[in-house]
């Protein structure tokens, strides 16, 4: 996938040879056995459960399989249909992108901001930390139910506070122009806590001497963070970025708990489930959507890996 930087190989070869010699170790027969079992089992499981199923999904996506009838090859018909006549696909893609943008530009930076604040040893810092982290302990499905309790049109807390309880409540979750933003708000609520705790752990590991040096050199807090701490946190930054992307693409449970992902709350994951599971059993068609989701995910993963490998080989 990623070509190693070829020109440097010859140049570095003489230098690395002496280093390697001292590291060579002899493996006993038992070591080899243990290693091959450990690695072998992992590889077999990985091939069977991840690559195997992915390949089968890709193959099924070119068929009209419905779980009962014999499988018939239909070429790219499923993809063509999804891209041309499925009105929900566009909405789902838009919602997944909104999710990514919202988490990436608002929730994640806010979580980092909170982590930096909490790292400054405020009073009651432990209390804030727990309060912000609490939603992470809840599953997103549970948050979906909470969302309903809070925003429901006739029995929701918000409408009760606004005094709109007599059939004139705001339909936060039923209005397809409004509901996605409400869901993002609640998904973001949880995401902020998650990012905060990750980042806080990272901040604790930054050498305080770095910060002290920056302060002595006359940097203000913003400069200290952006110029000194943030670059030093590179491994954590990468993890936070990856988590944000993964959370956006795999989002599913919260909308499924609210209205099974319909009426403005479509997501790619929901379309896959609706087509494959359920009475419809459009397994070929659903697989095609899943393959597209996989391609988007792979896009992010490959970009990430390319970056990492390039930096490491430097």
């Amino acid at each position: 996938m990623v070509a190693p930087p070829v020109p440097t190989v010859e140049a570095t070869a003489p230098r690395t040879t002496p280093v390697r010699r001292g590291r060579r170790r002899r493996l006993t027969a038992r070591d080899i056995l243990v290693l091959s079992v450990v690695v072998g089992v992992t590889v077999v499981l990985d091939l069977a459960l991840i690559w195997g199923t992915s390949v089968v999904s890709v193959l099924l996506s070119f068929t009209n399989y419905d779980g009962i009838s014999p499988i018939k090859w239909v070429g790219i018909k499923n993809y063509h249909d999804i891209l041309t006549i499925n009105p929900e696909f566009g909405t789902a893609v838009r919602n997944n992108l909104l999710w990514l943008v919202f988490l990436g530009l608002i929730a994640t930076p806010f979580g980092i901001f909170l982590a930096v604040l909490l790292d400054r040893q405020l009073r009651f810092s432990r209390f804030y930390q727990s309060a912000l982290y609490l939603p992470v302990a809840l599953s997103l499905a549970v948050i979906g139910f909470l969302t309903q309790l809070i925003l429901s049109q006739d029995q929701g807390v918000v409408n009760a506070i606004l005094g709109r309880t007599h059939g004139n409540g705001i339909d936060f979750l039923g209005d397809s122009r409004l509901n996605i933003w409400m869901v993002l708000l609640f998904a973001g609520w949880r995401h902020v806590g998650y990012i905060m705790i990750l980042y806080l752990a990272g901040l604790k590991s930054v050498d305080p001497a770095l910060k002290e040096a920056a302060v002595i050199d006359g940097a203000n807090p913003v400069q200290t963070f952006l110029r000194v701490v943030f670059p030093a946190m590179r491994p954590i930054n990468v993890i936070v970025l990856v988590i944000t992307v993964i959370e956006s693409l795999r989002a599913f449970d919260i909308v499924y708990a609210i209205n099974t992902g319909r009426n403005g709350l479509q997501l790619l994951s929901v379309l896959v489930v609706d087509n494959i599971i359920g009475e419809a059993s459009r397994i070929g068609y659903g697989s095609a959507i899943a393959v597209m989701l996989m391609l988007v995910t792979l896009g992010f993963v490959i970009t990430y890996l390319v970056n990492i490998l390039r930096e490491d080989s430097r």
Binding site: Q266, G278, E279, A280
Partner: peptide
């Protein structure tokens, strides 16, 4: 057919409720 009712009509009917103009309904 269940595959039609479940994957097409549920969302289409919900759109019927939202749409107002004849051109929207044509497109739908």
């Amino acid at each position: 057919r269940p595959d039609f009712a479940q994957t097409v009509m549920i969302s289409a009917i919900q759109s019927f409720i939202d749409k107002h103009s004849p051109s929207d309904i044509d497109a739908l």
